Simulated assay, not measured.
Amino acid sequence: MKSSLVAAIIVVLAVAHGYFSPGLVQFLQYMGLPLSPRTYMEDSKTKIQPLLEKFQAEATKLQEQVKPFIASIEDQMKPLTENFNAQVRPLTDMMEKFFETVKDQTKALMPPQ
Rank of each mutant, 00 (worst) to 15 (best):
T106S: 02
E53W: 02
V102D: 01
P111C: 05
H17R: 12
S3L: 15
F55G: 01
Q63D: 07
A8N: 11
T92R: 03
P90D: 05
K107H: 04
Q26E: 15
S3C: 04
E82N: 12
G23I: 12
Q29I: 05
T101F: 01
L33C: 05
V12D: 09
M1V: 09
I73C: 12
A59I: 11
V102H: 03
L24W: 00
Q26T: 04
G32K: 02
V6E: 12
M1F: 05
L5A: 15
T46S: 09
P50K: 08
D43L: 05
A86R: 10
K67A: 14
I48E: 07
G18Y: 00
E74S: 14
P79K: 04
F99N: 10
S3V: 15
I70M: 09
L51Y: 01
P90H: 08
Q113R: 06
L80A: 04
E58D: 15
R89Y: 06
T92E: 09
T101E: 09
M110R: 04
N83T: 15
K54M: 09
D104C: 01
I10Q: 01
T39M: 15
G23E: 08
K103H: 09
S4C: 04
K2T: 08
L24N: 00
M41Q: 06
K97C: 01
F20N: 15
E42V: 07
I73D: 07
T39R: 10
F55R: 13
E82V: 08
H17M: 15
I48V: 11
E96S: 13
S72V: 06
K2D: 14
V25Q: 04
Y30F: 15
F99C: 08
K67I: 07
S4E: 10
E58V: 08
A71V: 10
P111T: 05
D93P: 00
Y30Q: 14
Q56C: 06
K47A: 10
E100L: 09
Q29F: 00
T60S: 11
Q29E: 05
F69H: 13
A86G: 05
S3Q: 11
E96A: 11
S72R: 09
Y19C: 03
S21F: 01
K47Q: 11
M31P: 01
M94A: 12
